[in-house]
Simulated assay, not measured.
Amino acid sequence: MTHNLTELLSKIFGFEEFKGNQKEIIQSLLAGHDTFVLMPTGSGKSLCYQLPALIMEGTAIIVSPLIALMKNQVDALRETTGSNDIAHVLNSSLNKAQLDQVYHDVSAGETKLLYVAPESLGKAENIEFFRQVKISFFAIDEAHCISEWGHDFRPEYRKIRPVVDEIGRRPIIALTATATPKVEHDIRKNLGILDGKIFKSSFNRPNLYYSVEKKGEDVNARIIRFIRKRPNKSGIIYCMSREKVMNLSKLLQMNGIKALPYHAGLDAKERSANQDAFLSEECRVIVATIAFGMGIDKPDVRYVIHYDMPKSLEGYYQETGRAGRDGGEGYCLAFYNEKDIQKLENFMQGKPIAEQEIGRQL
């Protein structure tokens, strides 16, 4: 079964050509191979499973860790294809009527991509349902969540492979933007795709400028000056604590900067509204904990500021990688001081010894 992939890319997504090794990855999946993809943030990972899902028979199951990320991608796909049934989300936020609609559209063969939280994938009633429908493949997004050596470990990710076996074995594609060799091996071993095809892209982003400065008493004033020098430019500021997020966003607002907070403690409605305001440019700056930004598709973020030291180098790479996704310039500014290191060490107290060891290495 041959497809003119470039023609389909243009017709469905409006792009004239593939980036990097997107085409080879898609061909690997279409040929039924298990596939591991290591690709920097912003180089078009999601296209690697979206296009094959639209081509292949059946429904692709996309396992993703964040509800905001799923909603973002589903909305974009519906808009691109002009169909509301083409993509759905299956997670704990749905009510009974919405759930029935999802089941109906998948059973009818209307839905090509079903975004599922890892917890929902393993529910008995969902496993039973998936066994009765045609599944094209499984895509595991943010696959570094599988590894205890990763910067964003989630235990429920380690249960994905047994669930896939229960549903019925189909090709698996695992995608991540951050993985050391150890994390990569852990992902492939845990998913049982050690024999799969491997694709890795260069991680050099020449359009990003990195700067690290010592944090002084005047840090807030410096950030305000920095933002004012870039009027009408979008940026993200990462803070370690929710309290800091709230205080800094208020301070920026008081100084006439359109800023909004984003962290896991806000209710879902407010988080979603703030994210949408940022995407639609009603607000220029999002002040956030690291919960923000996984899979946020805003290509013209011009700067990423780390108010506090990032938790790990991997995490830092991924967070700063949200700048300049359109190929335009991105300024990455990080502030550091000794207190931040102490805070990070305090976070690890009381955790299992193995986890503390991993944390120190990261």
Rank of each mutant, 00 (worst) to 15 (best):
T80Q: 11
L51E: 08
K244I: 06
Q356T: 02
E24P: 09
L191S: 05
L121N: 01
K229F: 00
R170S: 04
S241Y: 14
M348V: 06
G328I: 00
F130R: 05
T59A: 06
I237R: 07
G327S: 08
V183R: 05
E79T: 15
H3T: 07
E24N: 10
P52R: 11
I12Y: 15
S83L: 07
V219N: 02
E7V: 08
P299R: 15
T80M: 00
G321A: 04
Q98L: 10
G265W: 04
K215L: 00
I62E: 09
K197C: 06
L252P: 10
Q101R: 12
I341Q: 09
Y49T: 03
K123G: 12
I172A: 05
L260C: 04
I198N: 05
A60Q: 00
V74K: 01
F335P: 02
S312P: 01
Q73R: 08
E243S: 12
K96D: 12
E281A: 15
I286N: 04
S202V: 06
H306R: 08
H33M: 01
A31E: 11
K233D: 11
A323C: 02
G109A: 10
S312K: 00
L113A: 13
L208Y: 05
M348K: 09
C239R: 09
Y209F: 08
V37R: 08
F138P: 07
C145P: 11
Y157P: 07
D152E: 06
R161E: 05
S120K: 13
H151N: 09
G235K: 15
I55W: 09
A76T: 13
S46H: 12
G109S: 01
E329D: 11
C332H: 09
L99T: 14
I160R: 07
I12P: 00
K200E: 08
N207D: 04
S280T: 09
K123F: 07
I290K: 14
K182V: 12
T41N: 08
V63A: 15
K311T: 15
Y336L: 08
K189C: 03
S43G: 15
V102I: 11
E217G: 12
Y210F: 08
E128C: 06
V285L: 01
Q27H: 12
R205W: 07
K200Q: 14
L94G: 00
V89H: 01
F347Q: 07
D300P: 06
A288M: 02
V106E: 03
L90R: 12
Q132D: 14
A68T: 09
W149S: 15
Q50G: 12
N337T: 10
D85L: 04
T180I: 08
G42N: 10
P171G: 11
F278A: 11
F203I: 10
F199G: 01
D218N: 13
G321F: 00
G265Q: 02
L9N: 05
K311A: 13
I187A: 14
N274K: 00
E270L: 03
E156R: 04
E156Y: 03
H104W: 14
V102D: 05
T80G: 11
A177G: 10
A108F: 00
K298F: 03
T81L: 08
Y262C: 03
G265A: 04
P118D: 06
G265C: 03
D152P: 02
E110F: 10
A291W: 02
C48V: 05
E148V: 12
E184A: 13
M294L: 07
L208Q: 06
K214I: 10
